[in-house]
Design a protein around this nucleic acid. Structure first.
Length: 526
DNA sequence: CAGCTGGAAA
DNA sequence: GCATATTCCAGCTG
């Protein structure tokens, strides 16, 4: 999708896709190396209707705003804000939002900046609509030899491009699909930096996965890598910490902030940067002199803090559309199908009289979905099937109906392992999972996923769930991703919202009726 | 220190 | 713009 690098999909009924152009999207595209000309060309090429000239001008002008101000390191004055455009510099300098961040004016294109305000200044400038390009450089940090292992594997070309893009930009975000090897991009960035590294991850399982991967793919050994979590507090040349331990506090005060100063880190890696908790943004504002790499599959947040990712971690430095990676054979092709079921009159009545807060639950967990889901499972008798939902009650109904075990948050690790093993070996064909599937990365791969309910309209969740079936299949066959939704309810609306991100990536959802899945009704015998 | 429980967060 | 499930940390117990 040529539009995806700079625009967000708004609606995508049948053939016309409506995109929303946002300044941030355009600036991210600019930082990732797309110029205004290529954006304008794509707009003209793919637009359903002639593109208004004013819009094209607006696109070009907006993109041009990024970088008119630069943060640089002046040999005699230290950190300064430089205006390639003097007027813009004057305009922003008198803004109250910048009060206390700027120092003395050196000349008509240069103003000194308090070094401690580097991050907050970028945040403020972005909000003013004049995002600064940060060219002020980085401290090297404490050197630590790290190299990629050389035993019969190589970085894939897109991984190499991602590392190069990141390193050239200095700091920022790399966007790659689930299963495309983001950890290796991190490892390669560490090798380039060859410095002590702090890796921030969402949970301990992810942290251990990082450690395993680093030991396998780099020169690092077990004891050079520390785990800093609730369980252990190791600080080593490479330290993997959970976001939660850093954001935990006692009596309102953060208790583990020292970790940031515990070593002279040369690189900070933010895994799953789309999940970055609010306090981490604040700490990161003070880490602007350290190189920062953000990794994610979906640079969308439902809370609108993309701007903070842009200013504090850095702009998008690289992204590969999912379909490009698919074309290269690194992820399996997938067919996405939305199956619409018609509620029974009784269910429709219940829905109609339900309060707004409860409506999604009622629609998403309708019993009418059960036989449809079973028919979908039976449609793929030789495949491993994951049934994924958000409501525990519904999942247990399904477990019974499909005669399949249910894996949820309260399932013990021991039991999870047992189920995962059985599923991997093929002994167990169908597994029903709750939102644990959104987090646990050790979840086995499947060829078919059936989504029965979700977290309202989370695009991020949809992408994660599709990711579960994208590992390339041995014989190159395609994966299947089904979403079962209740017609004429809010379930359909949320489904449409969830699908946006993947639709941007070029995945086309086919909408079918539940009756097509169930087959013709049996003739009545009387 | 293993296991349990409550609270917080996104 | 919601309400749910999950996860992790920290504090307590024996």
């Amino acid at each position: 999708m040529a539009i995806a690098p700079f625009a967000e999909l708004e609606r995508s009924p049948e053939h016309v896709h409506t995109y929303r152009l946002t300044p941030l999207g355009l600036w991210n595209a600019r930082a990732a190396g797309h110029d205004a000309e290529s954006v304008v060309d794509s707009l003209i090429k793919y637009s359903r209707y002639p593109v208004p000239h004013a819009l094209l001008v607006d696109v070009a002008e907006t993109m041009d705003r990024y970088g008119r101000l630069q943060l640089i390191n002046d040999p005699s004055h230290g950190l300064v804000l430089r205006g390639l455009d003097k007027i813009v510099l004057i305009e922003v300098a008198k803004s109250k939002k910048l009060a206390g961040m700027l120092g003395a004016r050196i000349d008509d294109e240069t103003i000194t900046v308090h070094a401690s305000e580097r991050g907050r200044l970028k945040q403020a400038l972005l909000k003013l609509g004049w995002p600064a390009e940060d060219l002020a450089g980085y401290v090297d940090g404490e050197a630590h030899a790290i190299s990629l292992a050389e035993d019969g594997w190589k970085l894939r070309s897109y991984q190499q491009e991602a590392v190069d893009g990141f390193w050239a930009g200095g700091s920022g975000v790399v966007v790659l699909p689930c299963g495309a090897g983001k950890t290796l991009v991190g490892a390669a960035a560490m090798a380039v930096a060859s410095a002590t590294t702090l890796i921030l991850v969402t949970n301990t399982v992810a942290g251990r996965q990082w450690k395993r991967e680093l030991v396998a793919r780099t020169s690092l050994t077990e004891d050079e890598i520390g785990e800093y979590s609730g369980e252990r507090k190791e600080i080593r040349p490479v330290t993997i910490a959970t976001y939660q331990v850093l954001t935990s506090r006692r009596g309102g005060a953060f208790t583990h902030l020292d970790l940031f100063g515990a070593r002279d880190w040369g690189l900070v890696i933010y895994d799953e940067v789309h999940l970055l908790p609010a306090p981490i943004f604040r700490f990161t504002a003070d880490l602007q002199a350290r190189r920062r790499l953000g990794l994610t599959a979906t640079l969308v947040r439902e809370d609108g803090r993309e701007g903070d990712v842009f200013s504090l971690i850095g702009p998008k430095r690289y992204d590969a559309p999912w379909k490009d990676i698919e074309a290269q054979g690194w992820i399996a092709p997938a067919e996405c199908i939305e199956v619409r079921v018609t509620l029974t009159d009784a269910e429709r009545m219940t829905y109609a009289v339900t309060e707004a807060e409860e409506r999604y639950r009622v629609a998403a967990t309708a019993r009418t979905k059960l036989p449809v889901i079973r028919a979908l499972v039976e449609k793929h008798p030789d495949e491993q099937v994951l049934v994924i939902g958000a409501y525990i009650d519904q999942l247990h109904q399904l477990g019974e109906f499909l005669d399949a075990p249910v894996l949820q948050g309260s399932t013990t690790n021991k039991e999870r392992e047992r189920l995962f093993d059985a599923f991997r070996s093929g002994e167990l064909r169908t597994l029903v999972i709750s939102k644990v599937g959104n987090f646990s990365i050790d979840l086995p791969e499947a060829a078919v996923a059936i989504q029965v309910s979700g977290t309202f309209g989370s695009r991020q969740e949809e992408a994660q769930r599709l990711g579960r079936v994208l590992r390339p299949k041995a014989d190159g066959r395609q994966a299947h991703f089904y979403t079962v939704v209740s017609r004429d309810t809010i379930d359909t609306e949320y489904a449409a919202h969830r699908q946006r991100f993947l639709a941007e990536q070029g995945y086309a959802y086919t909408i079918v009726d539940a009756d097509d899945v169930l087959g013709p009704p049996l003739p009545k015998i009387d």
